[in-house]
Structures are given as structure tokens and as C-alpha cells.
């Protein structure tokens, strides 16, 4: 009996040692040499594997960073500057500061403003509806409202507002990973600089049709009336194809354009109403002054002419 136990223990121990030896040798022989900095970089990354940096995942990003040895072209939008600083510290290279971005919804055609012209009854997916036709409202540029963007958001930073039928971005949660921007077949979503103290303004319309037909389709469509364009003193607003657009690089957030829009389609974020009011008053004052100046000049010119006239008659 004892013999059986002894032999069992011995043979099993022997087998175990043999297997351990084989595993050890194999792991030595076929070990994959990897830069250990990759692991370190990966550790500080947010591990969301969202692909927002353009790499297929956080590990791939870490690898790319280590290989590149510079942060010029690589940036993790989710981690932001804080994480990139840590990465730079690990690799002993210089950190590159970047302005944080956020996704914005560039359509304000809610149910109220944009009446349905037909009932869509296919698979509930914006992408499929977009391959079929221009949409269930008159506007061929607007949001289709089936929430493909919300589906792809990994950060639960979006939801569909049932009252308006438009997606809403939760500012604190949006990491600017670009997933929704890529998904939207109508290019309604766009990455926008988050702005100083999260303040930013943008035009929430993409309708390139002429004013009258655009307004027929959607009560808040940009008609390309160019009032905002005229009010801007910094050349930050351009009008192309009857559509106004704000250049975030040039915009100084003077807010003077906001209330020139008769449908209030210049959307402001995190800016108190008072400031807009002040800005508008300021603009009106400026305009008044400009008008007066013009008038005075005109008067002066007329007066000058008259004087000249008088002079000639006298002469």
C-alpha cells in the first residue's frame, strides 16, 4: 500500500519538475523582447481602448509613442494634457500641450422647428436612412435623430433628447474621442475646441440651401443673411453657400454676433446671458456710434459741398 503511495508521489513530482523545466526553457527560447517602457506608458493611459487617438487601442498607442520618441503627432484626447505630461515624464521627452476638444451638435432642428414630411419605417439607424434618402424632414442636412452617435459613445457622454429629437452631449463626460463624429452620416457632430473656461460659440446649422427654402424646411435654419458676418470685427465668421461658420481660432468670444441671429442659431456654451446682453448693448452702441459718424461725415460732406457751391455762386 505504502509503495503505491510512494511511487505515485514520486512519479507525479518527477512529471511536475519535467514540465516546469520544459516551460522554463520554452519561455526563455521564445520570449518576446518588448520595451518595458511600453508597459509603463500603458499603465498611465486611461485604458478605454476607444481609438480616439487614431491607434487601435491603448497598448498600440503606447507602442507608437515609444517607437516615435516624440509627442508631436500623438495625443490621447481622453487623458488630455495631464496624462500626456505623465507619458512625457516616463519617456523623458518634452510634453506637447494641446487644447482640449469637445464634440458639438451642429443642428438645432428640433421637432418643434423642423416638421416631419414623411415617416421613416426602415431599420432604425441613421446610416441606413442616409443611404436611402435625404431624411424624414424637408432639411437634407439635418440630424436624422436615430441615435447612431449615442450607440457608439463608449463614455455614456451622449443621449437622445426625446423632446427635441437631437443628441445631447454631456460636457463632463465627453472625451473628444471622435467616435460619434466618424459615425454620423450627416456630419452633424464636430470636434470643437473646448475653449477657455469651457466657453465656446458655434453655428448649429449645416443647411447650405438658399435662405427662403432653408427656412421653409426648418424654422431655425441658417439663411445666410450675413448679419452675424457683418457684426464680426475679427473676420472670424465666414459665409459659404448661404451658411455661416465661425472659425474658433479667430473668434475672441466677444459675443457681439450672438444676438444678431434672428433665430438664435449661434449657440453659446457656459456663457451667462448677462454677458451676451452686455455684448449686444456694446455692439449696438458701436453701431450707433458708427452710424452717427457716418451721418456726420455725410453731413460734413454735404456741408462742404454746399459751401463749395456757395463759394462758386459767390464767385
Amino acid at each position: 500500500m505504502n509503495e503505491v503511495i510512494l511511487y505515485t508521489v514520486l512519479s507525479l513530482t518527477g512529471l511536475g519538475i519535467l514540465a516546469a523545466a520544459i516551460i522554463h526553457l520554452v519561455s526563455k527560447k521564445f520570449a518576446v523582447q518588448e520595451d518595458e517602457r511600453i508597459d509603463k506608458v500603458e499603465e498611465v493611459l486611461p485604458a478605454t481602448n476607444c481609438g480616439g487617438c487614431g491607434q487601435p487601442g491603448c497598448r498600440a498607442f503606447a507602442k507608437a509613442v515609444v517607437e516615435a520618441g516624440t509627442l508631436e503627432e500623438l495625443h490621447c484626447p481622453v487623458g488630455g494634457n495631464a496624462v500626456m505630461k505623465q507619458v512625457a515624464a516616463i519617456l523623458g521627452i518634452e510634453a506637447v500641450e494641446r487644447d482640449p476638444y469637445i464634440a458639438v451638435v451642429r443642428c438645432s432642428g428640433s421637432f418643434e422647428y423642423r416638421k416631419k414630411t414623411n415617416i421613416y419605417d426602415g431599420e432604425s439607424s441613421c446610416k441606413i436612412a442616409a443611404t436611402l434618402y435625404s431624411g424624414d424632414t424637408g432639411c437634407a442636412y439635418g440630424c436624422l435623430g436615430m441615435g447612431d452617435c449615442v450607440e457608439v459613445c463608449d463614455f455614456e457622454a451622449m443621449y437622445m433628447d426625446e423632446k427635441t429629437g437631437l443628441p445631447v452631449i454631456i460636457e463632463d463626460k465627453c472625451t473628444a474621442c471622435n467616435a460619434c463624429v466618424k459615425e454620423c452620416p450627416k456630419d452633424i457632430l464636430e470636434l470643437w475646441p473646448k475653449g477657455k473656461k469651457n466657453k465656446r460659440i458655434y453655428v448649429a446649422c449645416l443647411n447650405e440651401e438658399k435662405g427662403s427654402s432653408a427656412r421653409k424646411e426648418c424654422a431655425v435654419a441658417c439663411s445666410g443673411c450675413a448679419k452675424c458676418f457683418e457684426s464680426c470685427r475679427y473676420d472670424a465668421i465666414t459665409i459659404n453657400n448661404s451658411l455661416a461658420a465661425i472659425d474658433p481660432e479667430k473668434c475672441t468670444l466677444c459675443l457681439e454676433c450672438v444676438e444678431t441671429c434672428d433665430v438664435r442659431n449661434i449657440i453659446t456654451a457656459n456663457i451667462p446671458d448677462e454677458k451676451i446682453k452686455h455684448a449686444t448693448e456694446h455692439r449696438i452702441r458701436l453701431e450707433e456710434r458708427a452710424r452717427k459718424k457716418k451721418e456726420e461725415e455725410k453731413m460734413a460732406a454735404q456741408a462742404g459741398q454746399q459751401q463749395n457751391g456757395d463759394a462758386t455762386t459767390q464767385a
Binding site: 416631419k116 414630411t117 414623411n118 415617416i119 421613416y120 419605417d121 426602415g122 431599420e123 441606413i128 443611404t131 436611402l132 434618402y133 424624414d136
Partner: peptide, 11 residues
């Protein structure tokens, strides 16, 4: 929902 509107769906 909306009366009188036509339905549109893929073939």
C-alpha cells in the same frame, strides 16, 4: 403619429 404623411422605407 403624424396624419397624412407618407411612409418611406427601403425596398
Amino acid at each position: 403619429m403624424s396624419e397624412g404623411l407618407l411612409t418611406v422605407s427601403p425596398s
